[in-house]
Design a protein around this nucleic acid. Sequence first.
DNA 1: TATTTTAGTGTATTTTTTACACTAAGGATT
DNA 2: AATCCTTAGTGTAAAAAATACACTAAAATA
Lengths: 233, 233
Amino acid sequence: MSEPIFQYRHPHPAVTVDCIIFGFDGLQIKVLLVQRKSEPFAQHWALPGAFVQTDESLDACATRVLQKECSISGVYVEQLYTFGLPERDPRERVISVAYMGFVKTTDFQLIAGNNELQADWQALDQLPVLAFDHHAMIQKALERLRGKIRYQPIGFELLDVKFTIPQLQQLYEAILGKNLDRRNFRKKILSTGLLKQLDEKQQNVAHKAAYFFAFDQQQYQQLMQEGIYLELL
Amino acid sequence: MSEPIFQYRHPHPAVTVDCIIFGFDGLQIKVLLVQRKSEPFAQHWALPGAFVQTDESLDACATRVLQKECSISGVYVEQLYTFGLPERDPRERVISVAYMGFVKTTDFQLIAGNNELQADWQALDQLPVLAFDHHAMIQKALERLRGKIRYQPIGFELLDVKFTIPQLQQLYEAILGKNLDRRNFRKKILSTGLLKQLDEKQQNVAHKAAYFFAFDQQQYQQLMQEGIYLELL
DNA sequence: TATTTTAGTGTATTTTTTACACTAAGGATT
DNA sequence: AATCCTTAGTGTAAAAAATACACTAAAATA
């Protein structure tokens, strides 16, 4: 039984998609890691990834990785960067297209509580040694995230459809790594016009219950179409 | 005489690096295009590109493309995005890692005046029909450039080592597509501390001669190390 | 009922952004 | 040589945004 062989007149690299999947536990940002089952780097923690299939776009590959490792769908993914040093993989020449994924709070909890998944949420300040160049991938993703949240509402993808302003603030503080004044943050973020206040309030909280808000996707699209340069913070 | 054959147990895509090479003629931004010599898209204008070689990083491949098409070196290059739709190339599965390159004014003139090169500078508002998905690549590069020049001195890579503030302003206006007040632009850009005024002035200009300035790379590195969030504009 | 813990609110001050006119200085023309 | 033309460089006033900060309201808990 001989396996299929693919032949080319020139050397071809393999191409993988590796995913830096962020989640937010209400306090801090975490990243999803898996333990490799085979060499190279067997037993090492690594980012979830897969080889790109022939008839599959890169975005679709990223989405497939997420579906396979997290059993969730509807995760916002965005390409980060392509890592292409010749020696990054000892097996052969492998180029990796790194993607960032953003898991919403409720899904974050589902993943955390699902013992059948082989994936774990890890705090960013306590990462284990990682396989390949995955540590560099995470650093680059954080750097991108910290830059982007100032002018794109990308962080919102980590929150549920309904969220409170204090939750949003905690998210921004976790990503930027610094405290923000509650009054000023509220004023600034509301001035963007991107939030719709709902009639619903938090329940069962030992303090004043906060109103829920939702992201106004339509308003955002309109601002983008008008070419407005956003400054969320 | 049989040619070498490369065999793999799984299908492997081909990977190219395509370069959106920007130049500045003092008034507007231009992009460097070449005419394809062979199918697919023979005779079509396209971005310069090449297949990634096995022992070559992606950055090195981009630099090689620039060296080959422009006969210049020392061009600042930066990865843009990886285009990976399955049908983007009719020959086979080809994934393209797009890079942006920034050619300084003096080199821009050298390339424009070199009849031996097969490459032409084209104005961005009069682009011909392009091969593959190269039009989309250019659009994405412009979008990136327009966003980045607000908080990274990337536009400076299009200017010579010595430049005047009116030249820098014209560059910003060309990229952003809008007029900026000269007094305000000067005040703002000087307030960043990233420019060193030289003793030298323009010569042979039929108006008041402007001082030359240089970019202060050291100061920029320091600000980056301190984690300062730059707002150039 | 009292306590605790926020969520929401507004003011004063400082800084930045925005809008705008005039003089200085170089080459070209008369 | 004088004049003209074309910017380069400069600063002020007003508006807007950013920064810093205290108190009341409202929910659960003891």
